[in-house]
Design a protein around this nucleic acid. Sequence first.
DNA 1: CACAATACGGAATCCGGATTCCGGTTGTCA
DNA 2: TGACAACCGGAATCCGGATTCCGTATTGTG
Lengths: 186, 186
Amino acid sequence: MRADAVRNRAKIVEAAKAAFAERGLETQMEDVARRACVGVGTLYRHFPTKDALVRALIIDKMERQAEAVKARLDADEDPWETFAGSLLHGAEQQLGDRALAQVLAQQPHSTWRSAAEEDTQLAARMAEALERAQRAGVVRPDARPDDIPLVMCGLGAVVQNERSWERYMRLVLDGFRARDGDPLPG
Amino acid sequence: MRADAVRNRAKIVEAAKAAFAERGLETQMEDVARRACVGVGTLYRHFPTKDALVRALIIDKMERQAEAVKARLDADEDPWETFAGSLLHGAEQQLGDRALAQVLAQQPHSTWRSAAEEDTQLAARMAEALERAQRAGVVRPDARPDDIPLVMCGLGAVVQNERSWERYMRLVLDGFRARDGDPLPG
DNA sequence: CACAATACGGAATCCGGATTCCGGTTGTCA
DNA sequence: TGACAACCGGAATCCGGATTCCGTATTGTG
């Protein structure tokens, strides 16, 4: 790849990250190009489609998140802290990236969203965090790994709309903690 | 208003309800018109804008929901049942209406969404249900009325994406029940 | 240094809807 | 029943963005 092409690609990715984080999915390709000081044509030579661009950004974000969870698991601290901390970290991630929150909350993308979650092992690692917490007896035993996407999905909506996402998170976390009451259905 | 105009308006409202419930906000004005066996022009004479049409449908849904909550309050049964039942009823409502779920989960509409909630007294009545449950000691005392929209907003996203919305609801409800642990922030 | 081979910019094109317009109908009232 | 206003249908128009195209400008190779 030619040197200028490499340089431009980097500029584009940076610009796109910033733009989508700030404005969300409505960000226009021209905005990205302008921010990157590049023509739309160039943008399209690097990413054939707006969707492809978004996909790349999201997968990148998820990889980072997966790493963060791994770090927590490796540190092997208090199981509850590991679990809750990972979830809260994810929430902050969404708070700082409108596009991420939108993708997590919306349906049309769910196909590759879940694919990405698995590819990046994010799902597996979160499951591990959950299981440890359950073994330690600090999370209800009837919680399941796939309850986590459930919560992150809801969070995506909350983060975009309401100011008190932190109350939401705490409420849900207390739901995970709960031990009395009816067991979860299905 | 001329007789045929009245008839057409009714047909349009019915068609719109069905179409938006089924397909969500992506429903096209022409689809609605076709279902109502009416030209787009007619549709536009009754509702000046797609947005106006959606607004009308949503407000209607909320009114019904407000009535349902009132009915529960009037019945004056077990406070927990009243509270949880109202929330679950809302969830079912969203399950049966893609557009409703989308509006509740998405941001751009939040302006008139909240307006509608207040107009229809839905907010006030949910608050009442919450308070009763708190007085009865079955809901944590640090929960607040505006935690409810939070949850319904998240639910909007969950309902669209994941199959197990019921697990989500139960988890959240257990969060409301919780009494130990840290108090909710902010 | 000259020539391909690659990249670039950004105006022009394309497209999927929403919204408008107007000649033709229908309902109503005297 | 006749006249007129209120309605209709749906083709034509408009618009915001994504995507394509092509004449130029850069690179790096012999």
